[in-house]
């Protein structure tokens, strides 16, 4: 369970990223955050694992109160909170397996990381994660040689290797074409349901949010302006969030063909 209590984020340049956010996200929920760019979606997600430190309020993840000033505490928190990015953020020059093993960092002694000599059980966990996203046969290929959709799956496997309680996904399908976007979202949904991992996803495509999430949070100017189950996130409500009428760009269309 993740609890935001009166969370404010003020960036060093004075820009207010979040203002007075109060949220409660239950364990195992799949939450989609929608809003125009600059609305504070990324800031909200990055506050959870301390990549963006909040400036006031109280944030609890599970039974841990997040303290953005303590590096050691943040590392312990981050080991339980996985993150997926829009641009995949893989080290493209090294193998898929080594990318997935980055997810084992928190549980690996530094000297083992330095030598690249991982324990057998860590490798096994990495292989299992790759199996779960269906690309275990690519384990020893360079990450650069994979397609965008496959790279995002490697990123998901990297997160799974952390054995996380929470998955944060910042625009995970914004760089992908519509059929691939659906495939990756289906993977995320399946993993959330199979493993009961709390999943928070930022997105700007409404139809994806409606087809895969349990709950939709709408943001505007750093504030939460809508919070409710998918059924309540009608076009009228979202137009209120966006403060404009919906256009074709707000949907991704092209439902993926079944594999």
């Amino acid at each position: 369970m993740i609890t935001f209590e009166n969370i404010d984020v003020v960036y060093p340049n004075g820009f207010k990223g979040l203002s007075n956010v109060n949220l409660q996200i239950n364990k195992g929920e799949f939450v989609a955050i929608v809003g125009l760019s600059g609305a504070g979606k990324s800031t909200l997600i990055r506050t959870v694992n301390g990549l963006v430190p909040f400036t006031s309020g109280t944030l609890t993840v599970g039974d841990v109160v997040v303290d953005p000033r303590s590096k050691a505490k943040l590392r312990r928190l981050r080991s339980r909170v996985g993150m997926i990015f829009q641009s995949f953020n893989l080290v493209t020059r090294v193998s898929v397996l080594n990318n997935v093993l980055v997810g084992r960092s928190a549980d690996t002694p530094t000297w083992r990381s330095l030598l690249g000599w991982y324990r057998a059980e860590d490798k096994e966990l990495a292989f299992q994660s790759l199996e779960r996203v269906g690309i275990v046969d690519k384990a020893y290929m360079r990450a650069a040689s994979l397609s965008g959709g496959q790279q995002q799956r490697v990123a998901i496997a990297r997160v799974l290797a952390q054995d996380p309680e929470v998955i944060l996904a910042d625009e995970p399908v914004a760089s992908l074409d519509p059929p691939t976007a659906h495939k990756v979202m289906r993977d995320l949904r399946r993993i959330q349901q199979e493993l009961g991992i709390t999943t928070i996803v930022n997105m700007h495509h409404l139809d994806l949010a409606r087809s895969y999430a349990d709950r939709v949070i709408g943001m505007r100017a750093g504030e939460v302006v809508f919070d409710g189950p998918v059924e309540e996130a009608t076009d009228e409500v979202i137009e209120q969030v966006y403060q404009r009428s919906l256009t074709a760009e707000d949907i991704v269309t092209a439902e993926a063909t079944q594999e």
Binding site: N49, L51, R75, R76, L77, R78, S79, V81, G82, M83, F85, S87, F88, N89, L90, V91, V102, G103, S105, A106, T108, T110, S113, L114, G116, A155, R158, V159, Q162, L168
Partner: peptide, 18 residues
């Protein structure tokens, strides 16, 4: 990007540099 990803997975400074 990869540096941020390593940070987000709880790596130490040495680990993320490596």
């Amino acid at each position: 990007g990869p540096v941020e990803a390593a940070d987000a997975s709880g790596a130490t400074l040495t680990q993320r540099n490596r």
